[in-house]
Design a protein around this nucleic acid. Sequence first.
DNA 1: GTTTACGTTTACGTTAACGTAAACTATACT
DNA 2: AGTATAGTTTACGTTAACGTAAACGTAAAC
Lengths: 135, 135
Amino acid sequence: MAADSYSISDLAREFEVTTRTLRFYEEKGLLAPVRSGNSRVYSSTDRVRLKLILRGKRLGFSLDESRDIITMYEPTTGNLRQLESLLAKIQEKRTVLEQRRKEIDSMLKDLRQTESMCLEALPKRSRKVAGRAGS
Amino acid sequence: MAADSYSISDLAREFEVTTRTLRFYEEKGLLAPVRSGNSRVYSSTDRVRLKLILRGKRLGFSLDESRDIITMYEPTTGNLRQLESLLAKIQEKRTVLEQRRKEIDSMLKDLRQTESMCLEALPKRSRKVAGRAGS
DNA sequence: GTTTACGTTTACGTTAACGTAAACTATACT
DNA sequence: AGTATAGTTTACGTTAACGTAAACGTAAAC
């Protein structure tokens, strides 16, 4: 097992957020670090949760949505009805994510199109300078 | 050519936003409908722009970012230096988008994993009810 | 001719997601 | 002892992206 214990500024540094942000996430019920005296002590589980929160943010999910998604990943002690409801939620999120993936793809397509228009407009001589960095 | 002309409430209805939103986007320089007397008249170009704005939103881009992206798509009258700067911006956005696509994929992977854990936990009898809607 | 539907501007209100500052505590060097 | 470093709580401030309400114009419908 790894170090498994981080201070608030450890995580803040690593993920480039402020300590205020971490306390805010806790306030919102997204993180729940243990206390050592007065200070917060984050476990590696907390670290993972933070990672998921930030990933969610980048993908345009609200903190509330991220919390929902994260609780999906957690050990479900639930009964059958809860399991089925969880499965339904998963399907729902999956649909959303797959839709967004498509939108990203068409956005990329648009960008590539504009890009090639640009390249056509460029005098041949300049191409090796300005041209494709892609793959 | 299509109808090519929409009222503010036409677009509001079609895209399920309020008229306030459309006026707000205009205020922010994202849309620029023509006026007929006092009223706004949106062209099909405006409609496309709106579509792009909303897509950007779903993908977690701010309105400012969306405006930047949209102007990338537009006919570049620019000179060589402008073209090269545009190409650079495109590359940048492409990188971001490709990164997000990866993140979506790993999110989907996580969801699938949780899903199969759920399915394992379900008594066999229930599976045909709760099971896969996928594909 | 007035009600209904649709449009306008102006302006203050609201929510999410933090930023920022003040005032305080607890170790940890020097 | 003094001061730097890292932590805490409390609370008001800020920005983006609209919501909401007031007060008004205009044109068709009854």
